[in-house]
Design a protein around this nucleic acid. Structure first.
Lengths: 238, 238
DNA sequence: TGGCCTATTGTACGATCGTACAAAAAAGCA
DNA sequence: TGCTTTTTTGTACGATCGTACAATAGGCCA
């Protein structure tokens, strides 16, 4: 895997273009052959492959081959492999921001008796819908894969992009469950996250059910909210 | 990573010794230098490294180096890398059998009103205790790492060694929660498993709590059982 | 002592990895 | 048209990968 540990350290970073160069030929009548945006091709190819196999198990050559471009073009646009990985998450930054906003929008005052379930739904539903969409399926899988990945590239991503989300959830839940020790809520978040990642990334129910059940059915969102919500309530009323 | 996809296919398998050769010199007074059991060294080294980084991110040379042994000796005792991986799980087969037995020992008849929690405990407690022990910490981490690993070597292990455990749990829970659709129990198992793996393998609470909370504290087992048990009850009483 | 089997070692092969680099092609602009 | 800049390409380097193999060392019994 080469992972990242020692090889090729200290070499100069390559030049790269962060935007897609000059103005795209913006003729009004745009029914032309439409020169392909190969930078986007590479980005989507990387997203899909990282989601399938995880960071270390994907080679730059795999990414280039799937995008239908020569290897060197990957380095030209994105520099090193790790920078490409980071860029994939930068590119989906809006998805993360949306989840934080939805969490912050929940009324967690003592008057709201459904605050716990509303919070779990605000946190989980965007991911579950994303998983069921065409354009977001790969990224939602990638998030699970990255959360589970023990490598330094993956944990760095989680720390930078998802720790703020976790803390926003924990803060809100602490408000919704006053008197409950923060340590418990923190562990509750970990359990809930483990469940959500299984919901989104699991490929096992299909096998265990003998092919009867499908993976990541978005209709199960209500059930999921009930499961995790009940856990938090029981967890914090001891 | 080289993962496993195509390289070196069809090559003849090497000879190997499955047992540690001739009789260990069984002198009664065994205070001698004690010739080291290098096969066991390799096995434990592999277990620890696979648990830390996952199958693909560990090289045979890493394993040999940690065991203090030349590379070729790994192949001599265990053959290919994948066979070594399998052997690590074979070596811990008793741990898996113990969990199944504990699940089967739970009284799931309608007269037992604590069946759900007893079942969750029977299923989770052995892992949580193993995680806290010196001799089992690495393997309990390895199980989580393997359950999360999308590679074919890992999914093969889960299928062979852990699908029977999952089905035993689901069957027992179906008996404890009569009238609850099996599909829900199956998904509940996935959520519970996701939570347990987080409990056992998580390294994030320490960071999120600012260093106040420790990872995988076995004292939290009761809390875990309450969390997951409540989920199953709420999940199946809709 | 010599023969036999096991254990151990160093080394080498082919493949794949991430990355760099120079040269060619294409596009934009005067 | 020429000139500059961006995009594209083929290729090569050094490192690391899994694995094989011949040679050596060591224990045990006749």
């Amino acid at each position: 895997m080469t992972s990242t540990r020692k090889s090729n350290a200290g070499t100069p970073r390559p030049r790269r273009r962060t935007t897609t160069g000059r103005t795209r030929r913006s003729v009004v009548a745009s029914a032309e052959p439409q020169r392909p945006d190969r930078r986007k091709d590479i980005l989507l190819s990387a997203e899909a492959l990282f989601a399938e196999r995880g960071y270390a198990a994907v080679s730059v050559r795999d990414i280039a081959a799937r995008a239908g471009v020569p290897v060197a073009l990957v380095g030209y646009y994105f520099g090193r492999k790790q920078e490409l990985f980071d860029t994939v998450f930068e590119h989906r930054r809006a998805y993360i921001a949306e989840r934080i906003e939805r969490i912050r929008a929940v009324d967690c005052s003592p008057t709201n008796h459904n605050a716990v379930e509303e919070l779990v739904r605000a946190w989980a539903e965007p991911v579950i819908r994303l998983r069921a969409s065409d354009s977001g399926e790969a990224f939602s899988l990638l998030v699970a894969r990255t959360a589970w990945d023990p490598g330094p590239e993956a944990t760095g991503i989680i720390e930078r992009f998802y720790d703020p989300l976790a803390l926003a959830f924990v803060d809100a839940m602490a408000e919704a469950l006053p008197g409950c020790p923060r340590a418990r809520i923190l562990w509750g978040y970990e359990y809930a996250l483990g469940s959500l990642l299984m919901y989104v990334a699991d490929k096992r129910v299909e096998r265990l059910s003998g092919g009867e059940l499908a993976s990541a059915d978005p209709a199960l969102c209500d059930d999921f909210v009930r499961f995790v919500g009940a856990g938090f309530r029981a967890f914090c009323s001891a």
